[in-house]
Design a protein around this nucleic acid. Structure first.
Lengths: 224, 224
DNA sequence: ATTTTTTTGTACCATTTCGCATTAAATTCC
DNA sequence: GGAATTTAATGCGAAATGGTACAAAAAAAT
């Protein structure tokens, strides 16, 4: 029961922790046989593919290389692990997009790049396209679980807001006509994200998804 | 173990069957204690709320008033029942919308009515909003189950097509500018359906969803 | 070397889950 | 009324599931 494929020791230090936690402060007992961050990544993969209910602790145990008690000790029960996975997913997604949202570039370019990244996220995955965690599994749990619901809502409005400032800026720069409504446009932009997430899950090929994105951009930005 | 709340005998004859199956042809053995159609409706409700994996046969048995062997005999195993439920959902959704898609009315009106119905479908439900079966649970199963995937794909393209002819007609009638692309617009219209399905599931109140719909209509149809 | 501390790994428990075998009931046909 | 037929109801059983107790293991501290 050991974590296979542990990352090469030098690479990808999970720069999450408190910035300056230099080396290990010499922990006391038996050393961990797993890297919490890679384990969480594996759990995320599973939850994302199969959803909460269809992912068993045995599956998680096998995927993370941790046995159940360790899993439990490190992350809490199944629901806690699910929530942590979702948090991780959102952090990663945000990290992948935030720079482009901030970048100084023409509206069309920025949108195109955002959607390209979204497609990368949704379509990759060893066992078929993975879709979007928020759309595919979290939204399902959201009906009955208030905590997850809050996270989903937060994620949705975060995306709306990012798009909204994007359009507002473009309008100020004269890239959009006077009558354009940044908020309505932002919600359409989010809707486009959602629709490609769903379609990706149904194995719609990337080419078609790109066509949808292009069409949406054209409508939102007006004629070239 | 009897089906409670059986529909009032006169009402709601499930006009599904082969058109002219008049009265019962006097079946031979012990009569059924359940109405297959209402049972399927109950199963649909459950699957829709909890998804495939989180819905147990015991839940289904309790909700339908059929015990497990009867359930099994009538619909086959859990997966078969799920698929039949999904089929039923799509039939109902199609039935609710098809007339409006066909109706002769200004584009804006037709869109508004379509979305109003969609909101009704997504927001109703005793235990919270129910969302869309396709988006919330079928799309999840679609990754790994080819049959369900085929149904999801069919549902998606069906909706795209309906919207597409809608926009094409409107364009021919001069309700849309020359440059309008009916297909791109249709995909945005579908995307709007998808986004409200997701947001409904996260308990976004109807007012907000209506605002999103209105904004989308305005962008798609151009300035009034 | 011994103790202390932390983690691992095995094994277990109670519950749930799916599916089916079997018996009892209700109805039609003869 | 009795045979045949169809369904209901009970309940079994094997497997899976979420969670945990407990002893062995591996490291630092003394």
């Amino acid at each position: 029961m050991v974590q296979k494929n542990k990352q090469p020791p030098s690479a990808a230090k999970p720069q999450a922790a408190k910035a300056a936690a230099p080396a290990e402060p010499k922990r006391r007992g038996r050393p961990r046989a797993y890297e919490p961050d890679v384990a969480l990544g594996r759990a995320l993969e599973l939850f994302r593919r199969d959803g909460f209910a269809a992912t068993s602790l045995d599956d998680l145990s096998a995927a993370t290389g941790m046995n159940r008690p360790s899993l439990y000790g490190a992350f809490g029960d199944k629901r806690a692990l699910y929530i942590k996975s979702y948090q991780r997913y959102r952090d990663e997604a945000r990290a992948a997009m935030i720079e482009i949202f901030r970048a100084e570039a023409p509206l069309r370019d920025r949108l195109a790049r955002i959607y390209a990244i979204a497609l990368d996220i949704y379509l990759s995955g060893a066992s078929g396209p993975r879709g979007c965690f928020t759309v595919m599994t979290a939204a399902s749990e959201a009906v009955s679980d208030p905590d997850i619901r809050a996270m989903v809502l937060e994620g949705l409005t975060e995306m709306d807001k990012a798009f909204s400032t994007c359009f507002r800026l473009a309008k100020e720069r004269g890239e959009l006509p006077e009558g354009a409504d940044p908020i309505a446009l932002a919600q359409l932009a989010s809707a486009t994200i959602h629709t490609i997430a769903i379609r990706a899950r149904a194995h719609v090929p990337r080419k078609e998804l790109e066509a949808i994105v292009q069409g949406a951009i054209d409508v939102m930005c007006g004629p070239k």
